[in-house]
């Protein structure tokens, strides 16, 4: 009994130590965000200070912060909706009316995801320039919808496959057409799966930085670009950087925590469940 208790205590200490180390940078960012700029750069960091919200106020007051945040929201939700609109019918078709080409199609979709973005950097930049899509929200929405489309199709496909066929059979007996089936039976049943698929797409888009840094400038930049702009001047605005970072990270952290299970399925294309 004694030994068991000791083991449990040792395990708890090790576990919390590991978690604490991994979480430390985020905790430090939170702490710095409520310091004054002078305290934030003190060479001997203090743990005892009067917390202030002035950095959050200052960041909010920067006219462009809200614009960047709004861009992030528009781009991540817009691209997710577009990807879902394309992917729901595709996943439905492949999950419920499979042909001998279905397997190949799924794997091919997966393989398009393997294309390194930098391989497409030059063409996409040039095409976007010619179409006037550089630094526009529409351009980013399209790019992210396409980038996430394979993952979204795959995740929806695995969710659709888990829906009991008997329910659909019954609907069919009652004379439901495939479209009725999709609307009245499948969508309600698949809603939880679609929600977590959408959540993953939002998370991935919100945090993506290759295309957002390369395709935007002052107008359509999302929060990834806003934060990156803090790296340019050598002025030490660490407290404000921390406040802006906290606001950029917080919503996605909550989303991520809520959807960690489904995330594994989506990120490994169903290979690990």
């Amino acid at each position: 009994m004694r030994l068991k208790l000791d083991r449990h205590a040792a395990l708890s200490v090790t576990g919390w130590l590991a978690a604490g180390l991994l979480f430390f940078p985020i905790a430090w960012m939170l702490l710095t965000s409520v310091k004054t700029e002078i305290e934030a750069v003190a060479t001997t960091p203090s743990l005892i200070f009067t917390p202030t919200l002035e950095n959050y106020v200052a960041v909010q007051e920067r006219a462009d912060y809200l614009k960047f945040a709004l861009n992030s929201v528009v781009v991540s939700f817009g691209s997710t909706l577009l990807a879902l609109a394309l992917a729901v019918p595709a996943a439905y078709g492949m999950a419920f009316f499979p042909t001998k080409r279905t397997r190949g199609t799924l794997l091919w979709m997966l393989s398009t995801k393997m294309m390194p973005p930098v391989g497409a950097l030059v063409p996409v930049t040039l095409v976007f320039r010619d179409l006037g899509l550089i630094d526009t929200l529409a351009g980013l929405v399209v790019v992210y919808a396409l980038i996430n489309l394979p993952i979204v199709v795959w995740m929806l496909y695995t969710f659709f496959r888990e829906i009991p066929r008997e329910i659909l059979e019954a609907g069919r007996m009652d004379g439901a057409t495939p479209l009725d089936e999709l609307r009245f039976l499948l969508l309600p049943l698949a809603l939880p799966g679609m929600a977590s698929t959408g959540l993953l797409a939002v998370i991935l888009t919100w945090n993506e930085a290759f295309w957002s840094l390369n395709l935007t400038a002052a107008h359509a930049g999302p929060l990834t670009a806003f934060i990156a702009s803090f790296s340019a001047p050598e002025g030490l605005f660490w407290a404000k950087l921390s406040a802006a970072s906290t606001m950029a990270v917080a919503p996605i952290l909550v989303f991520g925590w809520l959807s960690q299970r489904q995330l594994v399925r989506g990120l490994t294309f169903g290979a690990v469940k």
């Binding site: 991994l22 985020i26 960012m29 840094l213 991520g256 925590w257």
Partner: peptide
Amino acid sequence: LAIAPFFVMPTVSALIWKNL
């Protein structure tokens, strides 16, 4: 707490590490 870093956008984690 341990899985949290995965949800931090790359530009934020880069700057937090670089500066703070």
